[in-house]
C-alpha cells in the first residue's frame, strides 16, 4: 500500500468523523443531503458483500466494517433521531435516488468484468459511488449559509478521491500488469465532479470568506 492510498483512506475516514461530529455532537445535519448518505450506504452494502468471503487484510476488513457501520449510522441519525432529523433540509434535498441508481445498474449490467451477481453489484457500487455526491452538491448550491463542517466534509471527500488518483498512478508504474479500467474511469469522473466545488472552496478560503457557491 502506497502513501497516497493510505492518505486517501485516512481522508475518507476523517470526512466521516467530521460528519459524525456535526451530527452527534452538534445534533445538526443542516446542509447534509440524506439522498447522498443513503446512496453511500447502498454503495458500501453492495461493494462489501464479499467481506467475509474475500480476505485481503485485517486493515481492509476493519475499514469495510467502519464504512458500512458509519454510513448506516448516519442515515439512521438523519431519518430517526428526534433532534437531528428536524435539522434536515428536506425541501431542498429533492434529488431522486432512482435517477442515479437505475442508470448505474444498467451500466453495471452492460460493462463489468464477469456476469455474476456479486461482480455486477460490485461494479454497480463503483459506478454509483462516482455520482453519489451529486445530490449533496445540488444541496450545497441551494444552501445560503454553508457551515464550516459541511464545507470541510465535502472537501475531505473530494481530497480522498484525488489521493486515490495519485495512488493509481503510483501503482501503474510500480506494479507489473496492473490495470483496472472500470475503477479508473469511474474514479476520474468522481474526482471531476468536485472540480467546481474545489475552485470555490479554495477561492473563499484564500479570500478569508465564508464558503458560498454561485447558483
Amino acid at each position: 500500500m502506497n502513501i497516497f492510498r493510505l492518505c486517501g483512506d485516512m481522508t475518507h475516514l476523517l470526512s466521516v468523523v467530521v460528519l459524525l461530529l456535526k451530527i452527534h455532537t452538534i445534533k445538526s445535519c443542516a446542509g447534509i443531503s440524506l439522498k447522498t448518505q443513503e446512496l453511500y450506504a447502498l454503495v458500501f452494502a453492495t461493494r462489501y458483500l464479499d467481506i467475509f468471503t474475500h480476505h485481503v487484510s485485517l486493515y481492509n476488513t476493519v475499514m469495510k466494517i467502519i464504512f458500512l457501520g458509519t454510513s448506516f449510522t448516519i442515515v439512521w441519525y438523519m431519518r430517526h433521531h428526534k433532534v437531528v432529523r428536524q435539522t434536515y433540509d428536506k425541501e431542498q434535498d429533492t434529488f431522486k435516488h432512482y435517477m442515479l441508481i437505475i442508470p448505474c445498474f444498467a451500466l453495471a449490467l452492460l460493462i463489468k468484468t464477469k456476469f455474476t451477481p456479486l461482480e455486477v453489484l460490485w461494479t454497480f457500487s463503483i459506478y454509483l459511488e462516482a455520482v453519489a455526491i451529486f445530490p449533496q452538491l445540488v444541496l450545497l448550491q441551494r444552501t445560503k449559509n454553508i457551515d464550516n463542517l459541511t464545507g470541510n466534509y465535502v472537501f475531505l471527500l473530494g481530497a480522498y478521491r484525488g489521493l486515490y488518483l495519485l495512488n493509481w498512478i503510483v501503482r501503474y508504474f510500480t506494479e507489473k500488469g496492473y490495470r483496472q479500467w472500470i475503477t479508473w474511469i469511474s474514479g476520474i469522473v468522481q474526482t471531476a465532479l468536485y472540480a467546481d466545488f474545489f475552485y470555490y472552496y479554495i477561492k473563499c478560503w484564500r479570500n478569508n470568506e465564508k464558503l458560498h457557491l454561485p447558483s
Binding site: K64, T113, K114, E175, G177, R179
Partner: peptide, 10 residues
C-alpha cells in the same frame, strides 16, 4: 488472477 479481480482497494 488479474489485478482487477483482486479488489484490494476500499
Amino acid at each position: 488472477p488479474k489485478k482487477e479481480e483482486l479488489k484490494d482497494e476500499l
